[in-house]
Design a protein around this nucleic acid. Structure first.
Lengths: 239, 239
DNA sequence: TAGATTGTTAATCGATTAACAATC
DNA sequence: TAGATTGTTAATCGATTAACAATC
């Protein structure tokens, strides 16, 4: 008799909701990455509209300002609930704060910077980060001629002290702006110090535990895609 | 009797090849953007393998080094012809030169830089660009305290001279590293001077003629996506 | 020849677009 | 109420994955 079986002999596909308590009754639908990427664009847009005094915005106006279609915008938001009023549109300040909250940039996010070379110091001085509440709280390098120097209003710290320092700072995001050969080692140390999300500028595959997220940025890749299309449109000129 | 029918009476979907002359008999299949983006990763990989003396590589080994699946690699290459030998693999130097040629980075690509601030000067000093034969041939800015200063081995030139200068240089790619409010104007001037591909670092929608290609880079976007996933994995910890 | 690995086709998966009932 | 605009469903489109015949 199956009544004896405390556990289902045929494992069900769906895991039982279990007792998550009152949290999120809505079954978590996975949000597509392109949707997440567009969220920053919407946020930027509503911040600007808000600054210009606009109180309400329609999806059609969002399309006009961002180049992303109204349908796409509505679909993207739908992953996170209801935001607007039919016939009216979206409240600008409300939309801003809700998107910021989804991305967890409604409050300051501490980030550590590894690699204080050209790119690293440019990022440190880039005002866009602070505007979006990303705050670089420490920067590390291995070069003796850099260690101890001040950059913005921070000392550049010896990379070997990363773990010690981040045990106090508890930053969970790191920007990796080091040469390719140093990237894996830098990532390993960062992860050991508690980092769980890495923005990697080195053209290298980082091997990380499954609980760590990596995103790669490559200028060369961007230029190469442009270069390809440029050549394509040249050859079309002959047709 | 079907023997009479020289042509299928039901018109076929495919358009007739028409007389494109001897150029590209293979009908141009549109290459997906993700494929183009991965091409740089493959190139980087085969350059490294070549430097380490490897002569032949299989798609399985590419997967091992890049994290991109062997099937994906083969599918990606298939848009551009046949590259390997069944049972053997791909010749490393050959693969390198063919990918470089597809991306048109087998020969030097002149680029102009607009905006010689933190980010702009970091890009100018970034060795990866030259390694991939992207060569910044001029840099422009509007700030009087920057104009005339030397950066790498180049003078920073007054932005108002962009058109004049690029009529000689004939660069068709531009990197835009200016504040958001200056971006559209900078793009307009660049396009007027002959630029047809723009790498835009400003968080702004650029409005450009249809023959001009734009790619946008946003650090904030990348960090925001990381931030979202970080928050997600936190909430999973409670389950 | 036997084993390995390609290039390609078909099946799957996922994202975008279009359309519209619900509702302000 | 009539007009506008949302949120969502269904249809379309496109990219990835899996499988395998071809071939070295």
């Amino acid at each position: 008799m199956s009544i004896m079986l405390k556990f289902d002999p045929i494992p069900s596909e769906e895991t039982e909701p279990s007792d998550l308590g009152p949290v999120s009754s809505k079954e978590k639908e996975k949000v597509p990455t392109p949707t997440l990427e567009r969220l920053t664009t919407y946020l930027r847009c509503v911040i600007d509209l808000g600054a210009s005094g606009m109180e309400t915005v329609s999806s059609a106006q969002i399309e006009e300002h961002t180049g992303i279609s109204a349908a796409q915008f509505r679909k993207d938001l739908s992953y996170f609930g209801e935001f607007g009023k039919p016939g009216v549109g979206y409240n600008v300040p409300d939309l801003e704060s809700r998107i910021a909250r989804i991305l967890r940039i409604h409050q300051m996010q501490p980030i550590i910077l590894i690699g204080a070379g050209n790119l690293g110091s440019a990022l440190l001085r880039y005002p866009g980060l602070e505007e979006h509440r990303f705050h670089i709280v420490a920067s590390f390098d291995t070069a003796p001629n850099k260690i101890g120097k001040r950059l913005q209003d921070m000392d550049i710290v010896d990379f070997s002290r990363l773990r010690e320092i981040n045990s106090a700072l508890k930053a969970r995001m790191a920007i990796l702006a080091v040469p390719a050969l140093a990237a894996q080692g830098a990532a390993d140390s960062a992860i050991e110090s508690g980092v769980r999300a890495i923005l990697n500028f080195a053209p290298t595959l980082l091997r990380v535990p499954s609980h760590v997220i990596v995103r790669n940025v490559s200028f060369v890749q961007e230029l190469a895609v442009l270069s390809y299309h440029l050549a394509q449109s040249d050859s079309e000129d002959y047709s």
